[in-house]
Design a protein around this nucleic acid. Structure first.
Length: 587
RNA sequence: CGGGGCGUAGCGUAGUGGCUAGCGCGCCUGCUUUGGGAGCAGGAGACCGCGAGUUCGAGUCUCGCCGCCCCGACCA
């Protein structure tokens, strides 16, 4: 039994000044967590109970799915990460350190390498597979900017699983089993979530989905189609296919003098204001222009090469989407200095004529999927103050490839059905990947198949942010008074408050608390003497245990008040019925 | 890394170059109070982020450093 009189807890009346998001404010105010340093948090008793409840649910669901728990150190040797190149690829986000002999170590940001080697050490036959193993472990990532309390920390707890199969069909099955296990887990945790298509990104591999908890404070943006149910991270979204156009009646391209039009807005304005440039049927819009954006792509070895992306002028480039499309290259801005090195690029007036790997410049030119054969554009003429009109894609210019680079907007056509999509934000609570053979190859994990031939194992990787789930539930489940924990993860089933200055309510409450505990109900008992009832009520609402009982003046009528924290509904229960009523409520 | 903001007691904050750095919450003692963050009285708790400088005098002005928060970049 937790007793408020002795509990190591101090609630705060005011929000901490450095907190922005609700979970951060409330978890600190209610005395669940305290900050130690940027991105590092300590758990106080109530917080640690919630954390362990979540961990328990995750473990139970993984075990129920037939996955086996193992455990690695958080401190890991350099060598395996050297073999997969992640010692370098992880960059500044990896915590590196040395022992007294100056040998390199790292604090594990994720454990693909170690799991691969563990399986390699034990198994060598296709008969041993499939296998799925997991751990619940502290992970370390030296985030450039930890934020939002414990939503993005530098030390956090993750449940990470890995599946090992002999072929693609097996991987698909293992993936599906994890997907199902994740659904059960998040349902039990009381989280609302969406399963969205994602990019495999730097992890390598192919198929990948994210479990996103819809939440305005989330860091991930995703797209959802109300019509067909398609859901995808913006990084993974595919533009709705645009049909080719018959451009046989479009006049030949012609260059026009358009002084002082380095921006799309100025170009549209001059095009509509000069009679010889006007369209007869309607005004020009930004969507009629082809904007060519120069970026610098950087290879892992640091080599910088320019990249030009052509997209409709009414769209901004979404750098995250570009990076997803050009992985493993990274992006940097194209600076003034760079323009000097590439004189073919006239800032503000770049056109497709000078672009492309087969052109004189050799600069790679990728276009938005909306640029299809027959579409007609106004774009730069590669000369200061000049634009070219009626430039037809396919007829007058070509490109090296297509890239999903444009920002995704509310109302864009769904890639699946074409209906208008909506955009929302979410917190990533889980991520499942079909990794493939990247790690098995790098670390030489092979088994003998039924033909006695060595085959490389194919892997999946699956993560749940356990500590992040505490904050995510708090984000999704609170009101202006405090937290609202689902019973499964709450620090207790019932918060019993004794009121008044007489002994009787305290004695009755004490007896009830003991009886409930004997029936398996987890109790937090506010047995503080001399604390005003307002303080007790407010603390109980802040702490957010799902059921609150008030033992006080109702005893005169032989009743105890039972309140539902979430709904605020209240009923008066005769003392004699109280235990059974609560036991029923909690089961 | 770029932009913005901020460092005063456990928390939240006030503080025109000038007395012993103030207030609220919380904490301690006593009395009173007990159904929505009680009242009265008394008390403890501060290297005003650090270091230089200007000045008769610096929490306050100047410079440097450190740290923190937010936005962006970054982030399986």
């Amino acid at each position: 039994m937790l007793r408020m009189s002795t509990l190591f807890l101090r609630t705060l009346r005011e929000d901490p000044a450095d907190a922005e998001v609700p979970s951060h404010k409330l978890l600190v105010r209610a005395g669940y967590v305290r900050r130690i340093a940027p991105g590092l948090w300590s758990w106080l008793p109530l917080g640690y109970i919630v954390y362990r409840n979540i961990e328990r649910v995750v473990r139970e669901e993984m075990d129920a799915a037939g996955f086996q728990e193992v455990h690695f150190p958080g401190l890991l040797p350099r060598e395996p990460y050297e073999k997969t190149h992640r010692w370098e690829d992880y960059g500044d986000n990896l915590f590196r350190l040395q022992d007294r002999k100056k040998t390199d170590y790292l604090l594990g940001p994720t454990h693909e390498e170690m799991f691969t080697l563990m399986v390699k050490g034990e198994f060598s036959s296709y008969k041993d597979l499939p296998l799925s193993i997991y751990q619940i472990q502290i992970k370390y990532r030296d985030e450039a900017r930890p934020r939002a309390g414990i939503l993005r920390a530098r030390e956090f707890v993750m449940k990470d699983s890995y599946s090992f199969d002999v072929d693609d069909a097996g991987l698909e099955k293992s993936y599906q089993r994890h997907r199902d296990a994740y659904i059960s887990t998040f349902d039990r945790l009381g989280l609302s979530y969406e399963i969205v298509s994602a990019m495999a990104g730097a992890m390598g591999g192919s198929k990948s989905e994210e479990f996103l908890a819809p939440c305005t404070t989330g860091e991930d943006t995703y797209v959802k189609c109300p019509a067909c149910g398609m859901a995808a991270n913006v990084e993974a979204i595919v533009t709705h296919a645009v049909p080719e156009v018959d451009a046989s009646d479009v006049p030949a391209a012609h260059v026009e003098d358009t002084p002082d039009t380095p921006t799309i807005a100025s170009l549209v304005e001059i095009s509509n204001s000069r009679p010889e440039l006007r369209r007869s049927d309607r005004d020009w819009t930004a969507a009629d222009t082809l904007k060519n954006v120069v970026l610098m792509q950087v290879a892992i070895d640091g080599t910088r090469t320019p990249l030009v992306i052509g997209l409709p002028g009414d769209r901004e480039v979404d750098l995250k989407r570009v990076e997803a499309g050009i992985h493993p290259y990274e992006l940097e801005a194209f600076e003034e200095e760079d323009f000097k090195k590439y004189p073919a690029l006239v800032k503000g007036y770049i056109g497709p004529e000078v672009l492309g790997e087969n052109s004189a410049s050799g600069i790679r030119y990728l276009v938005d999927p909306r640029v299809v054969n027959g579409t007609r554009w106004i774009t730069g003429a590669n000369k200061r103050g000049n634009h070219v009109y009626d430039l037809v894609a396919g007829r007058d210019f070509g490109w090296d490839g297509v890239i999903e680079a444009a920002e995704v907007r509310q109302g864009d056509g769904c890639s699946n059905c074409g209906e208008e999509v909506t955009i929302a934000r979410g917190i990533e609570i889980g991520h499942i990947f079909q990794l493939g053979r990247k790690y098995a190859e790098a670390l030489d994990l092979k088994v003998l198949d039924e033909n006695s031939e060595l085959v490389t194992v194919t892997m999946g990787s699956y993560g749940i942010g356990v500590s992040r789930a505490v904050a995510t539930i708090a984000e999704q489940s609170h009101d202006d008074k405090g937290l609202l924990w689902p019973r499964e993860v709450a620090p207790a089933d019932i918060h019993i408050i004794a009121t008044g200055k007489e002994d009787e309510p305290f004695n009755v409450a004490q007896g009830i608390a003991e009886d409930l505990e004997a029936r398996g109900i987890r109790v937090l008992f506010d047995d503080r003497r001399g604390v005003s009832v307002g303080v007790k009520f407010n603390d109980s609402e802040l702490i957010g245990i799902p059921t609150i009982a008030v033992v006080g003046k109702g005893l005169n009528d032989g009743v105890i008040e039972l309140r539902d924290r979430a709904s605020g509904e209240q009923e008066l229960v005769p003392v004699a019925d109280f235990i059974n009523t609560v036991v029923e409520l909690c089961n």
